[in-house]
């Protein structure tokens, strides 16, 4: 089988390449220049420069794909999903979207994805030629290859780029954190974070939060939001403090190895999704746990 891969996320590029390693020949299209991508088994890396808008990149991929590949595998990022939508109409093919598991079976593929906000997993069989893949399809293990790189200048399309601005601040790498301390509405006030931070530092944890904490109250920045609509994390320990455990949240941390929850409400759904839990005040719990470390 021959795979064409598009990803504008370095991590997901590595995960997809490593997942496809041994399944066929793979060409990676990447708008991000990073030498480390060469070590993951791609037969070729095409570095995309120039007009990186949805229509220009899509038109380039359409030409690249035509007659030469069996599947187009796309990282599920904002740009990736837009490109998948555009190309699927131009090629009139089905997309298997937001998948976290793929099996290739006699010309068909069997994929799994979440639906209903993360409440259920849908397993489906399709004749899809395009697949959008969630982060975490594999661990992203280097294969020791040294893939050749070709640079391509993409011509402008219908949308004109005025300026490009790198995102402010350092990207928080929640996906790589081995311990995450995550806070929810139960924190009560933004200042409460001052009592959580020293504890997180002590155990070497990154701080994250639920949707209301990040998007509604802005106690934490938006890039620290764990959930179905935010970051999908899989640390060794996930400590949920004052998080009720709505499905929106669970869907972002379900793959954590050990889940610890502290909540005042003994009926909070988070207690159905944790390994260890304390029913009680989160500030007291943090102090107590810290004193036993």
């Amino acid at each position: 089988m021959k795979f064409l891969v598009f990803s504008d996320s370095l991590d997901v590029s590595k995960q997809i390449l490593s997942f496809l390693n041994g399944k066929g020949e793979t060409r990676l299209l990447s708008p991000r220049e990073d030498n480390s991508l060469r070590g993951y088994g791609a037969s070729e890396i095409v570095l995309l420069k120039g007009s990186l808008t949805i229509d220009s990149v899509s038109e380039f991929i359409l030409k690249e794909f035509a007659g030469s590949f069996d599947y187009l595998i796309i990282a599920s990022t904002s740009l990736g999903r837009d490109i998948a939508g555009y190309i699927s109409e131009k090629m009139n093919v089905t997309v298997a979207h937001e998948v976290f598991s793929i099996a290739f079976k006699d010309g068909k593929i069997v994929t799994k994805r979440f639906d209903l906000g993360g409440k259920v997993v849908i397993e489906e069989e399709s004749s899809a030629k395009i697949v959008t893949v969630l982060p975490g399809i594999s661990e992203g293990t280097p294969s020791g290859s040294n893939s050749p790189v070709r640079v391509v200048e993409i011509p402008a399309g219908k949308v004109r780029v005025v300026s490009v601005e790198p995102k402010k601040g350092k990207e928080v790498e929640l996906e790589k954190a081995s311990i995450i301390v995550s806070v929810g509405r139960g924190l009560g006030k933004k200042e409460g974070l001052q009592q959580i931070e020293p504890f997180a530092k002590k155990i070497g944890a990154e701080i994250a939060g639920s949707r209301p904490v990040c998007l509604d109250y802005h106690w934490l920045s938006e890039d620290r939001q764990v959930g179905y609509s935010g970051r999908k994390v899989r640390p060794k320990i996930y400590l949920a403090l004052g998080i009720s455990g709505q499905i929106q949240h669970i869907a972002g941390m379900r793959d954590s190895k050990i889940v610890i929850a502290v909540n005042k409400d003994k009926n909070a759904p988070i207690f159905q999704e944790c390994d260890y839990g304390i029913v009680g005040d989160l500030y007291t719990a943090v102090q107590k746990i810290s004193s036993y470390l």
């Binding site: 599920s76 999903r81 939508g85 555009y86 699927s88 979207h97 639906d115 959008t132 179905y228």
Partner: peptide, 15 residues
């Protein structure tokens, strides 16, 4: 918020 496919905008613009 339910399926998160994110495909619709690209599809409609292409059509």
């Amino acid at each position: 918020a339910d399926s998160m496919s994110g495909l619709l905008g690209g599809k409609i613009s292409a059509i």
